[in-house]
Amino acid sequence: MADQPTKTTQASLNKKAATKTAYKPSGVSPTGRKARSFAIRLWSVRHSRLLEWFYAHFADLFLLLHPMWNAIGYQRAEAPVKFVEKHVKGFLFDCRMCGHCVLSSTGMSCPMNCPKQLRNGPCGGVRANGKCEVEPDMPCVWVQAWSGAGQMRGRDNILAVQTPVDQSLRETSSWLRVTASAAARREAEATPGAPQ
């Protein structure tokens, strides 16, 4: 595509004007990159069906443990659970701890890795080879999400419109939040008529 020399742009001029030193940052990106290679993230998308199954059982297990969380206190459980969640999801999905996890609706491809942090589908700038507009070496998060969602049981979840991220939930555990709200819902169902 870029077979011909292209005209200079303001961006290329800026790049040229930058001072040259021995240290060159490897991946300069407006959002900050989580990883240099995307192998594990892509593995997760390829195995989205398996992870979906695992996640469903894992959520059930967490809900079963609700009395325990309650006994410990959700507040006190937060730090260790967050630690585990951050590192497990960080390893598998390059999780950014937005605290508002929608992996099950995005084909197990974390939308917060999109430089525009889009949560509702790909932007119009996706390159013809399926790579990102902003970071030419990264496969578009949403192209991956679409292929991951195609394998999942809840394949239509990707079609739901997501609400904007609540930035105040950043760096909190979404596992505990989901569990607590599921438990609250279950209790509300068990005692109909009770004030919510």
Binding site: Q10, A11, S29, T31, R119, G121, E133, V134, Q162
Partner: peptide, 19 residues
Amino acid sequence: GVQAGDQPGAKPVFDLDCM
């Protein structure tokens, strides 16, 4: 993205998305 413009060092906001 901010990288496309003349001020690539700007902070991208993207608080909402188009949807």
